[in-house]
Amino acid sequence: MSNSVHVYDARADHATVTAESPLAYSFQRSGMPAPGEEGRAVVSERAFLGHLILRGGAIVLDEALREVLGIGLPGRPNSLTVDADGQRSVQWLSPDEWLLIVPGDEIFGLETRLRAHLGGSHVAIVDVSAGQTLIELSGEAAHEVLMKSTVYDVDPHAFTVGKGVTTLFAKTNVILRRPDEARWELIVRRSFADYVYRWLLDAGEEYGIGVARESRHEPQ
C-alpha cells in the first residue's frame, strides 16, 4: 500500500520552524478584543490540530479506527464521536467521508497505522491539517451569533450535543459541530478564516464578543 500512495510527513519541527496558524494574520490585522465580563460570546482558535479526511466504506474504516484509535465512526449522518478525553474526534461528512481531528503531532503516526490496518482496501486518507482551522465559540449567546450566520437550525434544543454538519456560514462554508454543552466548533478553510473571524466579531458585537487565547475546552 505504501508504494501505491505517497504517505508523507510534511509536518515541520515546530521548535525550529515558525508555524503560523490560519488566524495569525487576522489576530494581527483585526486585533483580539477582550470578551465582555459576562463572556456571552467568546471565540478562540485551536490551532495546529491534525485534521485527516477519511474516505472509504464505513465498515472497513470503522474497524480500522477502533483498532488504531479506540473510537469508531459515528453511526448516523451529521453526527460526531469524541473520545474519552475529548482530544480526538471523528465526524460524518458524507456516506463515504469522515473528518478525524487529533492532536497535531499524532497525525502522521495515525495515518501510517491506519493504512497498515487497511491494507489494500479502497480508501483514501488525506492530511488537510494546514488547510483548515478549528474556531471555538462559547458563551450563552453563541447560538445567537450563529443564527445570524448560518441557515442551519442552531437552536440548542434542535442542534444537540454530538451533532455536526457541513453548511453555509455567511457567504462561505463551514463544518459546524457541538462536541459538548458549552462549546460550538467551526472548522473553517484556511483562506476563508479571516472572513469568518471578521464576521464573528461583527455579528457578535452586540453580545460583547471577544477572543480568548485559550480554549474553554478542558480535557477530562
Binding site: 449522518p77 458524507s94 456516506p95 457541513t166 453548511t167 453555509l168 462554508n173
Partner: peptide, 8 residues
C-alpha cells in the same frame, strides 16, 4: 448536488 454538505 448537495454542494455545501455531503457533496453528493
Amino acid at each position: 448536488l448537495h454542494a455545501v454538505g455531503c457533496r453528493k
